[in-house]
């Protein structure tokens, strides 16, 4: 950061001579200190997981949820400045709801990501605002079944105009990550926050390509997500944390098309396996040492 102190980094929307917007880069720094957040796009759904560092004993356990529902089928997890995250979520909810009132159908993931990307980008354009100090992961499931139009009367034709298109399947799981610059990509596995490097390394080992027959299932995804958060936490081992996880499947799947918290029993099982996997690694290392 050689340009610190030259003045080009004091105001948003100002380019430095070498074409950088420093305020956006500093916003990214705010994200890099936040708890690790990940998303995994599995064959039949999406998992969102978050490492929530416990900053005080006085906090109520298992309260203070941070993965938010934006529309029935869509969730958002973020890392960085918490209030900025709430701002992002409330905008995403407004987008989802206005889409519904215009099109009488839920907003597709790609459109939501696009609109949120545009919104976040707008906060890099003016010196009267600052960029968002968060990176947000948007995950959900666009219904494959043709949803009935909100408030539909009667059943209408089964196929053809006003009905469904036979054999054509749309929708499926989606996962996007929006950065402070407004940049967003679609992901198979996304990670942000303090432990993102370790998390990315783990995500890359997973089979997540849907065209590959071995693409992992949602339930496997839940277990992997828990394990990855535990792995990512290794660097700040001394600090306590809570694992928060949500998931969303197709209408035919375990969540019935809704974005909701992973049931307690499944989460605890995933955490147990995660701890075991970590211990296993330690033992391997110890064994090697002994040898």
């Amino acid at each position: 950061m050689t340009s610190i102190g030259t003045g080009y980094d004091l105001s948003n929307s100002v380019f430095s001579p070498d074409g950088r917007n420093f305020q956006v880069e500093y916003a990214v720094k705010a994200v890099e200190n936040g708890g690790t957040a990940i998303g995994i796009r599995c064959k039949d759904g999406v998992v969102l997981a978050l490492e929530k560092l416990v900053t005080s004993k006085l906090l109520k356990k298992d309260a203070n949820k941070r993965i938010a529902t934006v529309d029935r089928n869509t969730g958002v997890v973020h890392s960085g400045l918490l209030p900025d995250g709430r701002h992002f979520i409330s905008r995403a909810r407004d987008e989802a709801s206005s889409w519904r009132s215009t099109y009488k159908a839920p907003i597709p993931g790609s459109s939501l990501a696009n609109r949120m990307g545009a919104y976040v980008q707008a906060y890099t354009l003016y010196n009267s605002v600052r960029p968002f100090g968060i990176t947000a992961i948007i995950g959900g499931y666009d219904a494959e079944t043709e949803l009935s139009v909100d408030g539909a009367v009667g059943n209408g034709p089964k196929v053809g105009a006003g009905g469904k298109t036979q054999w054509v399947k749309e929708g499926g799981p989606f996962l996007y990550m929006v950065e402070p610059s407004g940049l967003y990509w679609g992901y198979y596995g996304a990670a942000t926050g303090k432990g993102r490097q370790a998390a990315k390394a783990e995500l890359e080992k997973l089979k997540l390509d849907p065209t590959d027959g071995e693409c992992i299932s949602l339930e496997e995804g839940v277990k992997e997500a828990a394990r990855i958060i535990y792995v990512a936490h290794e660097d700040s081992k001394d600090k306590e944390f809570e694992l928060e996880m949500t998931w969303v499947s197709a209408v035919s799947g375990p969540t019935k098309g809704k974005h909701e918290e992973v049931p307690k029993a499944l989460r605890e099982e995933a955490e147990r396996l995660a701890k075991k996997a970590l211990e296993g690694e330690d033992e391997d290392e110890e064994e090697k040492m002994e040898e």
Partner: peptide, 19 residues
């Protein structure tokens, strides 16, 4: 001309990402 600090307003991040 430019002040070399980041604490004048709430729309400026410091290089560490603080406000």
């Amino acid at each position: 001309m430019f002040r070399n600090n980041y604490d004048n307003d709430s729309v400026t991040f410091s290089p560490q990402g603080r406000i």
